[in-house]
Design a binder for these strands. Structure first.
Length: 595
RNA sequence: GGGGUCGUAGUUCAGCCCGGUUAGAACGCCGGCCUGUCACGUCGGAAGUCGUGGGUUCAAAUCCCAUCGGCCCCGCCA
């Protein structure tokens, strides 16, 4: 490979413009450009090079008769060589205009050129077809792709929109420690050994939750942070072990005040990053209604096919299976698929089989046909029951009604999942539609069969609804939380709550979660103490930057909105992290590897 | 922890079901020709531990087992 370029740390002439910004109005100007060779077309005489930088591509023309030295450089140039060129912006003749390119009406007639750095042959193609393993290994090359450039800049604009809005509302950006302490509850912690305190560990924060509460006690009144969070859990298409939240806390808000900030900020982000004006305020739905109608606490409102509660329709039924269910005081829910969205018999059988194997649940279905209903359970349904089902689901004829029976808490999410699968199957979700939604009034606690105790639905610092305070000892599972999630198209974008600011109440909630006063004081003493010195009422919310950016970019993977993501096994393929470390490093930390 | 899927020249892929030529194509790379292309064209060339290990077989990219890695999902993610 010819490589006669001279290494020089300094550029030979200044860059006056970015390639992608040049337009017809620049014709006649002398410009200096630096960029990568995106394509090279060698005609033996003339050579064309598409030069790419962060703003886009422009065509360079090298004419051996007009600039022989520059032409020799172009002759040597290959894909992804980094070039500096100097030349004139020239209007193309009408026949040679390229309407596909923003810069296609002009080209650069190069007078001088220099190879600032050659490139080894590319280990991957810079397009969507590249294998993701290679993209991650050679991330610095992948990042040159226009799509990645665009995504990360969209992210930048979104965060900028958030900062602008919050600054305008009097919020103060404050950084909190990355080296923090391990806390019980929640996700697995990433631990960092302390050299000066052998045997002790910091934890990386899962979120700055307690720190931001304490900042309210510290008098900052309105805080925000673009905060890196760490959770040592398995990865997914939209989950990485480290991710970024826009973390917000304020003194004395009602739920509505936090929502106003949250949706105002969201509007600012969409305006900045996508030029989209959101319609405010976002609608609200209580948790219970979301579960009842959509089988989900983050419903996708872009399509209907809502759940129906058929429990009372089958009161007194002779149909054995349903009668048994009702005898156990359980429920029967279903969804009615309209005539134009019909599953084949085989698909219904597959769905039934998948429910059986995954949830040990049966699927009953009937086709609402004339003259008679069809399907395995049709003959078990009395005329009264058919009439009630028809009324409950507002049937008009031709529907297929899918029914699942069991405890409502199990049945509704399963139907919610079926609802989503049907939407995917029939392509009911419009990609360009945005349905924001606040979900409120979550339960405060739920029962964890694995741990055989109550756990917080949100987190242990969430304030109970004031009307439910009396239930703390008698019926904690019936309590509601002053918590809220922001949902867009079935995705949770953020969530928050009004916090407990009273030491005694916080202790009583800890106790409900199985933490003794002693152990709560040991693990959360700093919080309890902070609450004991005139802590103001406070509350807040946090938003997932990557999830919002994914929606803004139409990205299917969180890795496409992060500069240096990790694989599903939490490995950075570029650097090889996590790596083994030397024995001396471990000894200094008092750590012995036992695996 | 579990289920699914993919892994073949530098790259993107075909071949694998149904075992049997020298494992093909395109892009890229190297060399030649070409003064208006824009994924330029054209002629020629080099380039492969078929992810790895084991097994079955006269014979394995192809069948079987194990293992490693990428991706998707369940569990997990207050």
């Amino acid at each position: 490979m010819p490589n006669n370029h001279q290494f020089s740390p300094l550029p030979p002439w200044p860059r006056t413009d970015y390639c992608g910004n040049l337009r017809e109005s620049d014709a006649g100007r002398e410009v200096g450009l630096w960029g990568w060779v995106a394509a090279r077309r060698d005609h033996g005489g003339l050579i064309f090079i598409d030069l790419r930088d962060r703003e886009g591509i422009v065509q360079l023309v090298f004419n051996p008769e007009r600039a022989a030295a520059a032409h020799r450089i172009a002759d040597q140039a290959r894909a992804e060589y980094y070039l500096a060129v100097r030349g004139a912006v020239v209007r193309r003749t009408p026949a040679t205009i390229n309407a596909e390119l923003p810069t296609g009406a002009i080209e650069i007639v190069v007078a001088q050129a220099q190879i600032l750095n050659p490139s080894w042959p590319m280990p991957l193609q810079l397009d969507e077809s590249a294998d993701e393993q290679l993209r991650l290994k050679y991330r610095y090359l992948d990042l040159r792709r226009p799509a990645m450039q665009r995504n990360l800049r969209t992210r930048h604009q979104a965060v900028r929109g958030a900062r602008e809005f919050l600054d305008g509302q009097g919020f103060v950006e404050i950084e909190t420690p990355i080296l923090w302490r391990a806390t019980p509850e929640g996700a697995r912690d990433y631990l960092v050994p302390s050299r000066v305190n052998p045997g002790r560990f910091y934890a990386l924060p899962q979120s700055p939750q307690l720190l931001k509460q304490i900042l309210m006690v510290g008098g900052f009144d309105r805080y925000y942070q673009i905060a890196r969070c760490f959770r040592d859990e398995d990865l997914r298409a939209n989950r990485q072990p480290e991710f970024t939240q826009i973390d917000i806390e304020m003194t004395g808000p009602r739920i509505e005040d936090v929502m106003a900030i949250g949706q105002g900020m969201m509007a600012s982000m969409f305006r900045r990053a996508a030029g989209i004006e959101l319609e405010l305020p976002f609608p609200r739905l209580e948790y219970e209604e979301a579960m009842e109608r959509f089988g989900s606490d983050k419903p996708d409102l872009r399509f209907g096919i809502e759940l129906r509660n058929f429990t009372s329709a089958f009161a007194g039924t002779q149909f054995r299976i349903f009668a048994d269910v009702l005898a156990r005081n359980e429920s029967i829910y279903g969804i009615a698929m309209p005539p134009d969205l019909q599953l084949a018999r085989r698909e219904l059988d597959e769905l039934a089989e998948s429910l059986r194997s995954r949830y040990s649940m049966g699927l009953a279905w009937v086709r609402v046909a004339e003259p008679d209903w069809q399907g395995p359970i049709a003959r078990h349904l009395s005329a009264t029951e058919r009439a009630r089902v028809t009324e409950t689901a507002a049937l008009k004829g031709g529907e297929t009604v899918l029914m699942v029976a069991g405890p409502a808490a199990n049945v509704r999410p399963v139907l919610g999942e079926i609802r989503l699968n049907l939407a995917a199957r029939f392509n009911l979700r419009k990609a360009d539609e945005r349905r924001f939604l606040w979900v409120t009034d979550f339960p405060l606690f739920e029962y964890s069969p694995e741990e055989r105790r109550l756990v917080s639905v949100n987190h242990p610092f969430t304030a109970p609804h004031p009307e439910d305070l009396g239930l703390l000892d008698s019926d904690p599972l019936a309590m509601h939380a002053l918590a809220y999630d922001l949902v867009l198209n079935g995705e949770e974008l953020g969530g928050g709550s009004i916090r407990i600011h009273n030491r005694e109440l916080q202790l009583r909630v800890f106790e409900k979660l199985g933490l003794t006063r002693e152990s709560a004081t040991e693990k959360f003493g700093f919080l309890l103490d902070a609450l004991s010195y005139g802590a103001p009422p406070h509350g807040g919310i946090a938003f997932g930057v990557e999830r919002i950016t994914m929606l803004l970019c139409g990205a299917d993977s969180i890795r496409d909105v992060m500069a240096f993501p990790k694989t599903q096994k939490a490995v950075d393929l570029m650097s090889g992290a996590p790596s083994e470390v030397g024995i001396e490093q471990l000894r200094e930390l008092g750590i012995k590897v036992i695996t």
